[in-house]
Design a protein around this nucleic acid. Structure first.
Lengths: 210, 210
DNA sequence: GTCTATAGTAGGATAGAC
DNA sequence: GTCTATCCTACTATAGAC
């Protein structure tokens, strides 16, 4: 069936990029992973770049959907960190972030990959952004948080960490531990009593003006 | 001269990876960038992977050296953030972090690239780690900072951000702005008077035990 | 040490049989 | 829609002239 073959090729592409990296991905390696003929890449998608773009779109949409409810359930920054950690562990299996990292790397040298990659990443950023906005609202640290920029920073950090994972797993997990630990600060800021909280707000206001 | 040719090839490799990405880097493209014959890649380095490893070593050692004094001059977390921003701007010209990002991406599919890449990244991590350790010492937030893990996290974030830059420059600079703004928090924590500072320490201690 | 030439392989893409 | 066969290009790597 045609729809089935398309799907096999998309899954084969995701698999191949994860295992071989963008530099080791070709119509032939993808087709082999998919268990179909190499010519079908061009019949169904026109070019390898177009197949990769499609794989990137599909895989990301699925992964973001998969996490939507859990993102929605987050009510504190600490919980968001915990979810991030879970997501990182999950990604070892699913590998969408690794795919995006490889697509980003590939986009550096091939503009045909750039726009689909950027769109896919925006799906993640938007999701993170909406959680951040909700969770940070009312917190004393709200005025120092630029939600939209921070969402980009978090996404970038995730991408970097996923790349590290292959080369230095220990460093990568130490990094997550460190962020977790640092998250205690956010919790402390959120749990201050009303007096201390007002004092913190005042300090932040004056520091912001400096 | 042989030494000169080696150097041209290394520079050509750095240049090619930055411009074409790891997937678009070959003995031919590198040699063209270096203005020398393609066969010299193999004469001098044995293989393309070996040339890339060497380029990665050399470029990183030079860049880390270049920043050593400035890292040493940093005395606060806020200053470190500012230096990070300067470094990011600098990297648009020099591109060592982009090179490392591409090497990381390549290492995912070719173990021959992994160890040199991991070594190069450790040069950066070590440098960041020693600054962090110095700067955080005595601060009330010291107990929640895992210096070594945080240094890895910062490096990973940098790598991710450098990859974003090519695909979404606006998002990348918004990310840095956001971190900068968040840095105000660190400044506030560091500038507390002795009473508030002791209170913060106590809060952190109890939160750490939870 | 650097070049030309070339062997051998892998990849992108298409034509045409089924 | 899928396959085989094939063209052409680009790549890694080596041999050998200079």
């Amino acid at each position: 069936m045609a729809e089935d073959t398309r799907r096999r090729l998309i899954d084969g592409a995701i698999d191949t990029v994860r295992r071989n990296g963008i530099a080791g991905t070709s119509a032939r390696t993808v087709a082999a992973a998919a268990g179909v003929n190499q010519a079908l890449v061009f019949y169904h998608f026109g070019s390898v770049a177009d197949l990769l773009n499609e794989a990137c779109r599909v895989s990301t949409a699925e992964d973001v959907d998969r996490y939507r409810e859990r993102f929605a359930a987050v009510t504190s920054l600490r919980e968001l960190l915990a979810l991030g950690r879970e997501l990182h562990a999950d990604q070892r299996e699913r590998g969408n972030v690794t795919l995006l990292a490889q697509m980003l790397a590939g986009a550096q040298g091939d503009e045909r990959l750039a726009s689909a990659t950027s769109e896919a990443i925006k799906l993640w950023v938007r999701e993170i952004e909406s959680v951040l906005r909700r969770v940070v609202a009312g917190s004393p640290i709200e005025p120092v948080v630029d939600v939209s920029g921070l969402a980009s920073a978090v996404s970038a950090a995730f991408v970097g960490m996923e790349l590290f994972e292959a080369v230095d797993p220990a460093g990568s997990s130490a990094a997550l531990d460190a962020l977790d630990r640092l998250g205690i600060l956010l919790e402390v800021a959120d749990d201050l009593g009303p007096v201390a909280s007002t004092a913190l707000r005042r300090r932040i206001r004056s520091a912001t003006r400096e």
